[in-house]
Write a protein that binds this DNA or RNA. Sequence first.
DNA 1: GAAACGTGGTT
DNA 2: TAACCAAGTTT
Length: 297
Amino acid sequence: MPSRELPLSLLHERVNGWYAEAGRKELPWRAPDATPWGVFLSEVMSQQTPLSRVEPIWREWMARWPTPADLAGAAPGDAVRAWGRLGYPRRALRLHEAATAMVERHDGEVPRDHEALLALPGVGAYTAAAVSCFAFGNPEVVIDTNVRRVLARTLEGKALPHVTLNRAESDLAREAMPAERDRANTWNVAVMELGALVCVARGPRCEQCPVADLCAWNLDGRPAYDGPPRRGQAWHGTDRQVRGEILRRLREAHASVPLATLVDAGDDPDQVMRCLDSLVADGLIEPLARGRFRLPA
DNA sequence: GAAACGTGGTT
DNA sequence: TAACCAAGTTT
């Protein structure tokens, strides 16, 4: 339960004021002339990915595919190749599918409402809310890892939020949002920005925080995280590593590649074969005759 | 609800 | 160095 003693209006004023002064205004998808498509692209690219790596790829994509129709008209493999090393390359495929859906169902435009956005491939609760808010000014409840951490600290006095987002936390985020539309829209981006720049997971810069004197966690002496263990993700020797290596080779090939040049993408040939199968099943690679592979045409 | 899904910088 | 973490989504 949130502390009812914390005056939300003061929190809103401080956080929004801080954003006006300290928020990153140079991010291209925050420019006044940014299109909904540009915002959409930035949100999908930013899933689980630091913005510093997103920006150069975003610029390349916007120059090459400035509208949904442009991407829909390209080969899916071109999207996968242009994705480069951003990670989670299925996002590139889903972006291509989403662009196609926009052309077929939405007159080539990014849909404006939450429901239609949520129906697009690769768009979940966060991305639907973020695009609806940031591209179209709808006061959605936008909840990402930054928002969750800031609210856990300021309102609940906890070092980190629970492992998984639950109903109570969503309700809390809704209650914490300003009622007035413009303030709510600024709040959404401002809280995220505060979490990204100041209220970070490790080594929070509370001395720079505009709400340090209101923050339940800070006022309580910043107690350590005491929830259930947060499992890290294995990497070395996993299918993910092998899939990544296979895809890296195909991206760099610019033509079809024989199995022989892929079979050492991992230590275990059986694992490599399994990963090739799963990549085909995902639509990320295309099998050709005589055991050759390429990015999907 | 848990697990899979990339990649690279930071601690 | 190993672990953590990053504007999550899908199955």
